[in-house]
Amino acid sequence: QLNAMAHQIQEMFPQVPYHLVLQDLQLTRSVEITTDNILEGRIQVP
């Protein structure tokens, strides 16, 4: 299920590496919260 959620987020934010999306999802278990984390700059994109 997390993989499906990660792919959904990757479609919206292809610039964010998959492993970072998955790592955040493991903590949040939420597409909405992880999306917010990306938008708020809480996930550092190399």
Rank of each mutant, 00 (worst) to 15 (best):
Y18M: 11
Y18E: 05
I43C: 05
I43G: 02
G41T: 02
R42V: 04
Q1T: 14
Q26Y: 14
E32C: 09
S30A: 04
G41E: 04
T35G: 04
Q44G: 13
H7V: 11
L39W: 06
D36A: 15
E32K: 14
V21L: 10
L20A: 07
L22M: 09
A6K: 02
T28R: 01
P46W: 10
D36R: 15
T34A: 01
E11P: 03
I9V: 09
F13K: 00
H19K: 08
I38V: 05
I38H: 00
N37R: 09
P46N: 11
D24S: 05
A6G: 05
I33A: 13
E32R: 13
N37S: 03
R42T: 05
L39N: 07
Q26T: 11
A6L: 08
Q8K: 14
R42P: 00
M12L: 11
N37P: 02
G41W: 06
L25P: 00
L25Y: 02
V21H: 00
H19S: 09
M5R: 05
M12G: 04
N3D: 12
N37V: 02
I43T: 03
H7N: 11
A6F: 06
T28A: 02
D36W: 15
Y18N: 05
L27I: 14
A4H: 10
Q44C: 10
L39Y: 06
V21R: 00
R29M: 13
F13I: 02
I9M: 05
E32G: 08
L25G: 00
H19P: 07
Q1F: 12
L20W: 08
H19R: 07
I38N: 00
F13C: 05
P17F: 05
E40D: 08
Q15F: 13
H19D: 13
Q44Y: 14
I9K: 01
R42F: 06
V21S: 00
T28G: 01
M5W: 15
R42Y: 06
Q26G: 07
I33R: 13
D36G: 13
Y18S: 06
T35W: 07
I38L: 07
E11D: 09
H19G: 07
F13P: 00
M5N: 04
L20Y: 07
A6D: 00
L25F: 03
I43P: 01
L2H: 04
I33T: 08
L39Q: 07
Q44S: 12
I33W: 08
Q44A: 11
I38S: 01
L39S: 06
P17I: 04
M5Q: 06
L39E: 05
Q26F: 14
E40N: 15
I43W: 06
I9F: 03
Q15Y: 15
V45P: 09
T28E: 02
Q23E: 12
N37Y: 01
D36M: 15
Q15C: 15
T34I: 03
L25T: 00
Q26H: 10
N37M: 02
Q8Y: 13
V21T: 03
R42W: 06
E32A: 13
Q1W: 15
A6H: 02
V21F: 03
D36E: 14
P14W: 04
Q8G: 07
L20F: 07
I43K: 02
N37E: 01
D36C: 15
A4C: 09
Q26V: 12
F13H: 06
H7C: 13
H19T: 09
M12D: 05
V45R: 08
L2A: 04
D36V: 15
Q8E: 10
I38Q: 00
E11M: 15
D36T: 15
V45T: 11
Q10W: 15
V16T: 04
L22H: 04
Q23D: 07
T28M: 03
L27M: 12
Q23F: 11
L2N: 03
M12A: 08
L22Y: 11
I9P: 00
I43Y: 04
L22G: 01
L22V: 08
H7A: 13
A4V: 11
L27F: 11
V31H: 05
